[in-house]
Design a protein around this nucleic acid. Structure first.
Length: 259
DNA sequence: AATCATGTCAACCGCAGTGCG
DNA sequence: CCGCACTGCGGTTGACATGAT
């Protein structure tokens, strides 16, 4: 598997690593550590670029890495963490037991994303896809609401459409940058409070159906907008109109009281 | 048995962030 | 303040494996 071996213009070896190369890299790092990736290949006797060595070490050779099939619990954790952190694979990996960001990213793209879509959940916003692919979006840049029909797979910043999704994204940044205790966050996320809302009854019913109707394996708890707003003690309108900075300030305030 | 579609995994590329002179 | 070098991250690619037709 992987990519066939070849040499680039500078004589650097590319593609699949051999057992001998692995051995050299591990031996060198065990003896000298991982400082200065740039000069490491030469000192370790490898015809590789530093980047390639770093990647090989972090994603494959580093001790304690867990590979192979994800357990149901791990998949559930990835989905919950992705709902909070977005495509911040490195941040997600930090909270998972010995899984690499690459591994998590691969599993998400090849499996979990499709599974969520099949279950009528937008994998980017983790919100139900209303009316079969039609979701309401609000563009902050143009300052107006609009309706689109594409289940966007673009970057989180461009596709996070609802105020709460953007809010969560900022909250996630705060969480990851401050290294808060993830057990607590996991606990909060794994115990969502389902509440009735004076908003769209039909949508609420759909959300309930999603939770109840899905297969056992694919049934994950979800955050609900109103719940997030109430939890953060701000309302939908405020979230839509407040500047990023003040929303972030608000989330930091909440985080401080939480942790 | 052959072909096609889908899944899995490892690796590369380009860009953004950071630190330093 | 600016430019450069380096690191880390996310998106993407490509090869092989496996399952479906």
């Amino acid at each position: 598997m992987g990519k066939k071996t070849w040499f680039d213009d500078g004589g650097m070896r590319k593609g699949e690593w051999t057992a001998e190369e692995d051995q050299k890299l591990v031996a060198y790092i065990n003896e000298h550590g991982t400082c200065d990736w740039r000069s490491l290949p030469q000192r370790a006797g490898l015809q590789r670029c530093g980047k390639s060595c770093r990647l090989r070490w972090l994603n494959y050779l580093r001790p304690g890495i867990k590979r192979g099939k994800f357990t149901a619990q791990e998949e559930e954790d990835v989905i919950k963490l992705h709902a909070v952190l977005g495509n911040r694979w490195a941040a997600i990996a930090k909270q998972m037991e010995n899984r690499t960001d690459n591994d998590i990213k691969n599993h998400w793209n090849s499996c979990l994303k499709k599974r969520l879509s099949r279950n009528g959940i937008d994998p980017m916003t983790h919100e139900p896809i209303i009316n079969n692919l039609t979701v309401k979006t609000t563009s902050e840049e143009c300052g107006s609401s609009s309706t689109t029909t594409s289940p966007s797979l673009a970057s989180p910043s461009s596709s996070l459409s609802s105020g709460s999704a953007r809010f969560l994204n900022k909250l996630a940044a705060g969480i990851s940058s401050r290294q808060h205790d993830l057990d607590r966050i996991k606990n909060i996320l794994s115990n969502p409070r389902i509440t009735s809302s004076d908003q769209d009854e039909e949508e609420e019913g759909y959300k309930r159906d999603q939770k109840i109707g899905g297969g056992e394996e694919d049934d994950f708890p979800m955050w609900i907008d109103e719940d997030v707003m109430r939890y953060m003690e701000i309302d939908e309108m405020e979230c839509e109109t407040t500047s990023y900075d003040s929303v972030l300030y608000e989330s930091m305030h909440v985080l401080d009281s939480l942790f």
